[in-house]
């Protein structure tokens, strides 16, 4: 077991090294990744002075916030009322579907709309809907186990004591589910904020998000330290989601 423990920690270290390297390099006062030129904040200053980056991060944030709020709320309602394997299977199927297939399908549908109904949704609306298409089933799947944790009898007790349906949700279910709600919200937010493929298929050239910007540099290889700073900032929602998720889950054990 000791050997396994050391092995496990070695793996943990290996998983965090690449991310750590980028964060460290974002403070490196040198353009070359293998030369340490001392600590600096100038890449962050450059990033903040870069209008396109501002626009990209802002766009990503707005889309992710909207998507997270809507899908978590609707996911909760779905998990609460649509119990049963049939519904969950639909959402699970959506979650494991390969992203390219799904993105292409969405792009194809948007193209049809554009060609035949003359409605061009490519751009912010398309991105929003494409993200929602994925995060809604995801929120449903994530919330379902916690909703079943509430148990029918608690709900029935509240109803018998005279609470209306809405009242039951607000004053009984919501407080119990609050941690799960927050955790799901953050996971969905991080997912939407980070996702690239769906965005690429549904956006228009003038609507840029943070991953698109990152891709434009990453796909060319290497990149400059300003992009390290961008990547480091993009980690924040992921870390927040992970930390809060594990804290929230603990409450239910």
């Amino acid at each position: 077991m000791r050997v396994l423990r050391i092995y496990t920690w070695a793996l943990i270290a290996a998983m965090y090294v690449p991310i750590g390297v980028v964060v460290v390099l974002s403070f490196n006062n040198s353009k070359l990744p293998y030369v340490w030129g001392g600590f600096t904040l100038r890449w962050y200053q450059a990033l903040f002075g870069w209008d396109l980056a501002w626009q990209a991060v802002l766009n990503s944030t707005v889309i992710a916030l909207g998507v997270a709020l809507l899908s978590t709320l609707l996911g909760l309602f779905m998990a609460y009322t649509l119990r049963g394997d049939r519904y969950i299977a639909f959402s699970q199927g959506a979650v494991v579907m390969p992203e390219v297939s799904e993105a292409l399908a969405f792009a194809a549908a948007l193209s049809l709309l554009k060609d035949y109904a003359n409605v061009n949704l490519f751009g912010p609306v398309g991105v929003f809907l494409a993200h929602l298409a994925y995060t809604l089933p995801m929120a449903h799947v994530l919330m379902a186990p916690y909703v079943s944790y509430v148990g029918r009898n608690v709900v029935e007790a509240a109803r018998i004591l005279g609470a209306s349906e809405l009242r039951t949700v607000l004053s009984v279910i919501a407080p119990i589910l609050f941690p799960a709600f927050i955790a799901t919200f953050l996971i969905v937010f991080a997912n939407s904020f980070d996702t690239y493929i769906k965005t690429a298929f549904t956006t228009s050239p003038d609507f840029i998000t943070a991953p698109i910007l990152l891709w434009n540099y990453a796909a060319r290889g290497r990149g400059d330290p300003t992009i390290y700073a961008l990547a480091s900032l993009m980690l924040i929602p992921s870390i927040a989601a992970a930390v809060i998720y594990f804290r929230a889950v603990k409450r239910y054990s």
């Binding site: 090294v17 690449p18 996702t195 690239y196 290889g221």
Partner: peptide
């Protein structure tokens, strides 16, 4: 919870 693109980019640097 870390996006695929971020991971890919980090590895690229490494």
């Amino acid at each position: 919870w870390v996006g695929t693109l971020l991971k890919a980019y980090s590895l690229l640097v490494v």
